[in-house]
Amino acid sequence: MSILNCFGQPVGEEVPDWCPRPRPERVSLIGRFCSLEPLHVQRHAEALFEANRLDAQGALWTYLPYGPFENLPDYARWVEEVSHTEDPLFFAIVERAFGRATGVAAFSRIEPEHGRIEVGHLCYSPLLQNRPAGTEAMFLMMQHVFDELGYRRYEWKCDALNEPSRKAAQRLGFSFEGIFRQDRVVKGRNRDTAWYAVIDREWPALKAAYERWLSPDNFGADGVQKERLSLLTAPLLRQEIRYRSE
Score class of each variant (00 low, 15 high):
1 M>W: 00
3 I>L: 01
6 C>A: 11
10 P>Q: 05
11 V>A: 06
12 G>L: 12
14 E>P: 01
15 V>Q: 03
18 W>D: 12
20 P>D: 15
20 P>K: 14
20 P>I: 14
24 P>G: 14
31 G>C: 09
37 E>A: 02
51 A>D: 01
52 N>R: 09
57 Q>G: 06
59 A>E: 06
62 T>D: 00
64 L>N: 06
66 Y>M: 11
66 Y>T: 10
67 G>A: 09
75 Y>I: 05
81 E>D: 06
82 V>M: 13
83 S>P: 11
85 T>N: 14
89 L>N: 02
90 F>S: 03
91 F>D: 04
95 E>R: 10
96 R>D: 07
103 G>H: 08
106 A>M: 13
108 S>M: 12
109 R>T: 15
113 E>V: 15
121 H>T: 12
129 Q>L: 05
134 G>Y: 01
138 M>A: 05
139 F>T: 02
144 H>M: 04
145 V>A: 08
146 F>I: 13
148 E>H: 12
149 L>I: 15
151 Y>F: 10
151 Y>K: 07
160 A>M: 10
165 S>V: 15
166 R>M: 11
167 K>A: 04
178 G>P: 02
179 I>Y: 11
180 F>K: 03
191 R>S: 09
202 E>N: 04
203 W>Y: 10
204 P>D: 09
207 K>Y: 00
211 E>R: 14
211 E>S: 13
217 D>N: 08
217 D>W: 05
219 F>G: 12
219 F>T: 14
220 G>E: 15
221 A>R: 14
222 D>A: 00
222 D>Q: 00
224 V>Q: 13
228 R>F: 09
235 P>Q: 03
235 P>E: 05
239 Q>T: 09
242 R>M: 08
